[in-house]
């Protein structure tokens, strides 16, 4: 896992039908770090993640996975290296936590293979890491939003990939569960050395949890760097169209940017 080359996008353009969303994007991930992708609605944040895992083919440019063109991989080959948690995943009613997490081994077992000792171990450790060991036999639809999101993260962990892509993992969660999920992601980054990319709407979360913030607007990267360097009053006004103030989090010492209004009043 250590000599794995993180994902790199070079001059990537991608889109849906006639509409181009990404326009010649360059981005190189750094191993073992958390990157937050932020930007207004429709800016192409989620598309960046989809292109990174070849869920959306690129129109031009190249995505490099472990130093090789991602198009040279099989679908399950990619899934062994990159886990993706989509924005609003859904499972059939009655599916239990364990049954869901075991699906994370699909990239390894394929259609007919057995889970095996390695698979069982990966599933168990994913359940332990996400604190779900007591919930394994519970159907997903009986869990709280936060527990359910942890179960989906466990599925992604069971894949055994070293890169984790999360599309708005905190949407629909109350504030405590948002922190729970983000703390979990941060701990995965430190304990497993995973490379994490999160699309986030909440800029305070981005400033608090990310090592690096990438701001996407109209399919281009408009700012990229440490949260304190990127999330400025000026950027908030030009990209998001809001007035903001800069504060320091007294607990972590991190700077963060608090939007205070549209700036029109």
């Amino acid at each position: 896992m250590n000599d794995f080359e993180p994902i790199r996008l070079a001059q990537v353009s991608a889109g849906y039908g006639q509409r181009m969303v990404l326009d010649g994007l360059d981005l190189e991930l750094k191993q073992g770090t958390i990157t937050a992708i932020v930007g207004p609605n429709g800016s192409g944040k989620s598309t960046v993640i989809r292109a990174m895992a070849r869920l959306l083919p690129t129109r031009s440019g190249v995505v490099l996975l472990d130093g090789q063109d991602i198009r040279s991989f099989g679908s399950r080959g990619i899934a062994r290296l990159v886990s993706v948690l989509p924005q609003s995943p859904s499972s059939p009613p009655g599916l239990t936590v364990r049954e869901l997490v075991e699906l994370g081994r699909f990239p390894h077992t394929g259609l007919f293979g057995r889970l095996g000792a390695e698979g069982t171990l990966a599933v168990e450790s994913a359940l332990t890491l996400t604190g779900l060991s007591d919930f394994v036999e519970r159907p997903l639809d009986e869990l709280s939003g936060g527990e359910r999101q942890r179960a989906w993260i466990a599925l992604a962990l069971a894949q055994g990939a070293s890169t984790l892509l999360l599309d708005e993992p905190t949407t629909f969660l109350d504030v405590r569960h948002q922190f729970e999920v983000l703390d979990l992601v941060a701990s995965l980054c430190t304990s497993r050395g995973m490379t994490v990319v999160m699309v986030l709407h909440d800029l305070v979360h981005a400033a608090n949890y990310a090592d690096r913030v990438v701001v996407v607007d109209s399919g281009r990267i408009v700012a990229d760097g440490a949260p304190s360097a990127v999330l400025t009053v000026e950027l908030m006004r030009t990209v998001f169209g809001v007035a903001a103030k800069i504060f320091t989090n007294p607990e972590s010492g991190r700077m963060f940017c608090l939007p205070i209004g549209t700036g029109r009043s």
Partner: peptide
């Protein structure tokens, strides 16, 4: 089982 998930999750699993 994979098909029973949403399309994006299914594709992400390969």
């Amino acid at each position: 089982n994979v098909l029973q998930l949403d399309d994006e999750s299914g594709r992400a699993l390969g």
